[in-house]
């Protein structure tokens, strides 16, 4: 079973994303900020990361830059999932190594379509 780490400081968003991703056949782990997510990845690299941008302690883009420098950190498919919806943010995310980008609000169709895009569903 493929694993997906859901990183978001909102418990509600994590719960919604978990339900959608479980229906798509993923095993889910959750983290509420970038630092926690990094700890998860160091313990067990997931196949995919669904990543919020604005979070306390360590935000999404900083997490992504750290992740890509970790051993094996180039492997996970990282899909941003954020309210930031301007081209500058999207370009910055892609430059930092994001594979796809979802603008909130999202629904199950959008998540499924983006995961197909990156070859995970």
């Amino acid at each position: 079973m493929k694993t997906c780490l859901v990183v978001d400081d909102s418990k509600v968003i994590r719960k919604v994303a978990r339900r959608i991703l479980e229906d798509l056949g993923f095993e889910i782990a959750e983290a509420s900020d970038g630092m926690e997510a990094l700890a998860w990845c160091r313990a067990a690299m997931p196949d995919a990361v669904l990543l919020d941008w604005n979070m306390p302690v360590m935000n999404g883009i900083e997490f992504l830059r750290h992740l890509r420098r970790e051993p094996g950190g180039d492997k996970p498919t990282v899909v941003f999932c954020t309210v930031e919806n301007d081209l500058d943010h999207i370009r910055e995310a892609l430059a930092a190594g994001a594979n796809e980008y979802i603008m909130k609000p999202f629904d199950g169709d959008i998540i499924a379509s983006k995961l197909v895009e990156v070859g995970l569903a």
Partner: peptide, 10 residues
């Protein structure tokens, strides 16, 4: 966000 890869959007 329906079917369009993010790089195509950019």
């Amino acid at each position: 966000q329906r079917g369009l890869p993010i790089r195509h959007l950019v």
